[in-house]
């Protein structure tokens, strides 16, 4: 698991990779916290290279969504493969977190 992030005009695009599970969810959380600042307008988290996310990883997504909501930073996820999309659908997380097909769609949705 790792995160690569770039920032342009207050929008952070973070790309995670590998498996996100209870063995590295803490690291995932601290890396995610490190790439985004309260002053950022939006965070787009790209799942293209993520192979698996467990409930421990979903919890980090939830914590991130809640803290970004407090700082008024928009948050969107994108580019999930079908099995991960299904995890977000079954858990109902797609009802509270924006998910888009592509990075371009996510960026335009957050107004970048």
């Amino acid at each position: 698991m790792g995160i690569n992030a770039e920032r342009a005009d207050g929008t952070v695009i973070a790309k995670a990779d590998g498996r996100i599970d209870s063995s590295n969810s803490r690291e995932f959380h601290s890396e995610l916290e490190a790439v985004v600042a309260d002053s950022d307008a939006a965070l787009v988290l790209d799942f293209e290279d993520v192979a698996y996310i467990s409930s421990a990883g979903m919890r980090v997504i939830l914590l991130t969504a809640k803290s970004l909501q407090k700082s008024g930073t928009k948050f969107a996820l994108c580019s999930m493969d079908d099995s991960i999309r299904e995890v977000f659908k079954i858990s109902g997380f797609d009802k509270i977190i924006e998910i888009h097909q592509s990075q371009a769609e996510a960026l335009s949705a957050v107004g970048a």
Partner: peptide, 11 residues
């Protein structure tokens, strides 16, 4: 069919 629920403790 799913009943369109949400994990408990979230909202």
């Amino acid at each position: 069919p799913v009943t369109e629920g949400l994990a408990l403790g979230v909202l």
